[in-house]
């Protein structure tokens, strides 16, 4: 052991290996991401053109397009958020501002946690049976939206709760001390302060909706037509509104069907559109959380 001096650093070959494993794992994660995004863009970019985005696939006219699916996706996002946001924010307000710790709160937190762990196939089966058969909605955009409402609810509840927690207690006591009622305090002080957090939850929900497929396959179906619009305004409005009771496939469903049929070019085209949407959502989230941090520092 004559060489073991304090001044010489001991060499540990095992450590070099572990360090290499750490670097290796991290590079795998990054390369996977770059590979996936790069490859989908590379394959899908060639398919993208204005006609692909603005027409509907039809063998009669010989067109290949996803306009109908884009519209269905927008419908489902809008309806789902319209239902899920008020319920989610309201629930979070109850949990954070009204509830006293106890069995009810525990149960609510457990079920919210459970909801976020249930796989989308199960939501699909439930939506098919409950909204589809029991409530008689069949395969429709409304059925799909109601099913997705259950899926995104935990996201909105949790982000709103998180945001409400960061509002200082002095705001609450200040408002109440000046004679404001609790509801007035929530409406004018808490909700505005919690806005970035609520927005984060909503945008995460949009991301989840855009990427969802299994739950929609059994609930919203796979139609890809656009509503036919004439010149009569009232009739047009009723057609646009009536669409929510008709089946409609989102972008992900169309991608799945196309790849099932071996139409990989179209599938990569849709994949490319989906990735652009996902990238935009991520960017938006960065901007919002960045802004929130900036305001927090002031």
């Amino acid at each position: 052991m004559g060489n073991d001096t304090l001044y010489q650093k001991r060499k540990r070959p095992g450590e070099a290996f572990l360090m290499a494993a750490i670097y290796g794992a991290a590079s795998i994660a990054v390369l996977l991401l770059l590979g996936i995004i790069g490859y989908v863009f590379f394959k899908g970019f060639r398919v993208l053109n204005p006609a692909f985005l603005t027409t509907v696939t039809s063998s009669l006219k010989g067109t290949v397009g996803i306009a109908g699916n884009l519209l269905n996706t927008l419908y489902i996002i809008a309806i789902t958020l319209l239902i899920a946001t008020p319920i989610g924010v309201g629930g979070a307000i109850y949990l954070n501002e009204y509830a006293k710790p106890g069995k009810l709160v525990n149960l609510i937190e457990f079920t919210t946690e459970t909801l976020s762990g249930i796989p989308s196939v199960i939501f699909g089966l439930f939506g098919m049976v409950f909204f589809g058969n029991v409530l008689g909605l069949g395969y429709s955009l409304l059925n799909g939206s109601l099913t997705l409402t259950l899926m995104v609810l935990p996201l909105i509840v949790r982000n709103t709760q998180e945001a409400l927690r960061t509002v200082p207690d002095s705001y609450r006591s200040g408002a109440l001390g000046m004679g404001a009622t609790k509801w007035y305090m929530i409406r004018t002080i808490l909700l505005p302060s919690a806005k970035p957090g609520i927005l984060t939850g909503v945008i995460l929900a949009v991301g989840r909706i855009v990427g969802e497929s299994a739950a929609l396959l059994f609930t919203a179906g796979s139609a890809r037509i656009l509503p036919k619009l004439g010149t009569n305004l009232v009739e047009n409005l009723s057609r646009i509104g009536g669409k929510i009771l008709q089946p409609g496939g989102t972008l992900t469903i169309e991608l799945y069907l196309q790849m099932q049929n071996g139409e990989y070019e179209v599938a990569f085209g849709i994949g490319c559109v989906l990735l652009v949407i996902v990238l935009l959502i991520n960017l938006l989230l960065k901007v919002i959380t960045g802004n929130a941090r900036k305001y927090g520092k002031q």
Binding site: A29, V30, L32, L33, L34, I36, I37, Y39, V40, G207, V210, G211, E212, S213, A214, T252, L255, Y256, M259, Y264, A267, F268, G271, L274, L275, V278, L279, I281, N282, K286
Partner: peptide, 21 residues
């Protein structure tokens, strides 16, 4: 952020790459 993006990619896209590559 790269890891966060990986979480946001729709599962059908993983399926597409799986079947194609």
């Amino acid at each position: 952020p790269a890891v966060e993006l990986l979480a946001g990619i729709p599962s059908v896209i993983y399926g597409l790459l799986g079947i194609y590559l």
